[in-house]
Design a binder for these strands. Structure first.
Lengths: 112, 112
DNA sequence: ATTTATACCTAATTTTCTTAGGTATATAAA
DNA sequence: TTTATATACCTAAGAAAATTAGGTATAAAT
């Protein structure tokens, strides 16, 4: 687990990237996928996630589709047309930011 | 200039890295060096910088040396022994975080 | 029967930053 | 010569974004 301050500011970018790849995901699913993909190094908290998802929906970046699974509700989120642009911009900006930080902190980028 | 939320959480790491390389720097100098090295893409605000420097001094990570330059004061900061450990930890953690984000967002790292 | 996992949510607090000032000297431009 | 820019420090109010710590409810595992 990284110190909380490090992960700050990356939440929207992470959400948008994951939702851009699979056409729909629900909140809990997002937390689990991020946990899996990062080996537990990044764990989104629900207190941060849900308000952010609601805000992004209000901004027209995401749309929702509420489904009943057994007796539980599940709220699927997907990226709108506008959201796709935002997603690309966010990811590109973050990519540029990483390059800048690698240079500034004199880090060796790993080979893929 | 990056969106402010992106740069959040990187301030201490940037300060510690720069101060670890030159034995002493003053606040204004740090803002200028970061601006220069990043081509203006990262511009530290004084309202964030000074309180952080003060906090890091209070925590024993930095020490100060106040000098008179003409009729102006200049407050030099340098990294303490404890601070050097923190600096290494912070930079390593950030480096690891970048690797994780590159994987999570499926970014292509640039060649150095 | 109780804990863990799933699945949603909110409210109070804390952390961290921005905004917007204030003080003061030195230099460059108009 | 006055005005703007650069240097150089600082703080306080407010905003933004997260954490912490709850609440509700079903399903599955211990």
């Amino acid at each position: 687990m990284y110190s909380s301050e490090l992960v700050k500011g990356t939440l929207k970018t992470i959400i948008l990237k994951l939702l851009s790849e699979s056409d729909k995901m629900y909140g809990y699913e997002i937390t689990q996928k991020v946990k899996d993909l990062t080996g537990g190094k990044i764990q989104l908290t629900e207190g941060a996630l849900y308000p952010t998802l609601h805000a992004m929906e209000a901004q027209g970046i995401l749309t929702t589709d509420v489904v009943n699974v057994g007796n539980r509700i599940r709220k699927y989120y997907s990226v709108t047309q506008t959201g796709k642009k935002v997603a690309t911009e966010k990811v590109n900006e973050f990519s540029d930011f990483i390059d800048t930080m690698i240079f500034l902190l004199d880090l060796k980028p790993k080979m893929g």
